Computed example of a mutant assay.
Amino acid sequence: MANEYLTIKELTETVGGNMTPRMVRHYHQVGLLPQPVRSHSNYRLYTQQDVQQLRRIVALKQQGFQLSHIRQLLETDSSSENTLTTQLQQQYQSVMQQLARLRQTAAALEGLLGRDRACQNLQAEAIAQLRLLEVETQDGLGQLEQLWDSWDAATHDHPEAFAESLQRLLPDLSDRSEIEADLLSKLVLACGDVSLVNFVRLGNQAIAAARNALSSNCQVVGDVPAVVAAFDQTRLKHLGCKVTTLIDDPHITSAAEAEQVFWHQHQRKLQQLERGCVLVVGYAPSVLMAVCDAIENGIQPALIIGMPIGFSHAPAAKRRLMRSRIPFITTEGTLGGGLLAAVALNALAESLIEKPDCHCYLDECN
């Protein structure tokens, strides 16, 4: 009978995922795992049911769920699904409020650290004044607003030096190639959110594939006119690339419209894409999902820049793209949009023209 059980060490080795005995003991304490049976020597003993439960916990945690969410998901049966949905909605709003507060903190830090060389004296003065700030009354809060107003007034003296600001705010990119670091910097500048760096994904030698395709006068396809309008037409023409639009309807002004039009009218146009093209999807998640279907049926783009907008279909389409064999550039989750997708293409075209002999990206497993 002893052979039917696993020790806590054997349990963690079986589950994998960097699981440790300490984490297992913590899951017992917070109620995620039931207390195990004990041996005569008082050792914890686990069953295959415990293995499955722990694997569920690991999988959900890897997807970003907090332990409180995981406990609710595992404990709630299907009959109370509506109650669970309400509880998760409440927790989602709580998380969003926390993110908003963190965003405010980040904005304050960016306001100090993002100052360029011309503002460094002002930065030192600002830090000194913040240390002396008294905010015990409402007047104190007004004093803080006055400080920001005085610091902001100095920004009229000179144009912003974006490169200097990014040096202080971007995470360490020394392990990235020069071209990838430049791409990430341009994406951050396009949206104003430094945290985007953590969500950008490049796969299957994307940079090499992009440079090879663009230097071979490939077809460049955007999903909607708004995305194509943001392409650097001058550089693409210099490279000899023909630009086309998949959903060529000038009246489309939103992701919702693009989604509906493509779903009903344009899916068959994917089969007409040229082999070795670069496809840029910035609006409709159904386009990206249909592209993944078409890849399985034989189309072979050289690169897909997939950054559609959406809250359920877009993340699903991006996950499928990242599992494909095609080189890709995408953003995890709901982040994305037509401007970011176009900026990614433009950065690649610019780097190819400005540094045609650069091979720094070849050492990467991007």
Rank of each mutant, 00 (worst) to 15 (best):
G192I: 12
A230F: 03
Q265T: 04
T155E: 15
D249R: 05
T86K: 11
G298K: 14
M19T: 13
G17W: 02
N366F: 05
E274M: 09
N42Q: 14
I247Q: 06
A290E: 09
Q63L: 15
L144I: 13
G17M: 02
V291C: 13
I127H: 08
Q49S: 10
A314G: 06
L99I: 07
T253K: 14
A290H: 12
R55M: 07
Q48W: 10
A2T: 11
A213D: 02
K61S: 14
H156E: 15
K237M: 03
E75K: 13
Q167D: 15
L196R: 05
E354S: 06
L130Y: 14
R323Y: 05
E296Q: 14
D172K: 10
F162V: 14
Q89D: 04
L169D: 12
A126D: 14
R56G: 01
E257K: 13
E274L: 12
R235G: 01
T12F: 02
D223W: 08
R117T: 09
D248K: 03
H26W: 07
G16Q: 05
D232Y: 01
Q35W: 06
V227G: 03
Q271L: 06
V278P: 00
A210Q: 01
R176F: 05
Q272C: 02
L321K: 08
Q66T: 13
Q146I: 12
T244L: 07
A342T: 04
R320N: 09
P21R: 08
E13D: 08
I353Q: 02
K237H: 04
T14C: 09
L288R: 10
Y27P: 00
Q104G: 00
G16H: 04
I207V: 07
N204A: 04
R101V: 08
Y27N: 00
S39A: 12
I353K: 01
C365I: 12
W151C: 14
S254G: 02
A294E: 05
R325N: 13
R115S: 06
D249I: 05
T334Y: 09
E364R: 13
Y27Q: 00
G337P: 04
R131P: 02
I326G: 07
L32Q: 05
S150E: 14
P301I: 15
A342M: 05
L99M: 01
F328I: 00
C358D: 15
H251L: 06
K186S: 11
C191G: 04
Q120K: 11
A2L: 10
L33G: 00
G142W: 14
L321N: 09
M1P: 03
A208Y: 07
H313L: 10
E274Q: 15
W148R: 15
Q143N: 13
V30R: 04
C191E: 13
R235I: 11
N121T: 13
L187Y: 09
T137V: 11
W151F: 13
I70D: 02
A317R: 11
K237L: 04
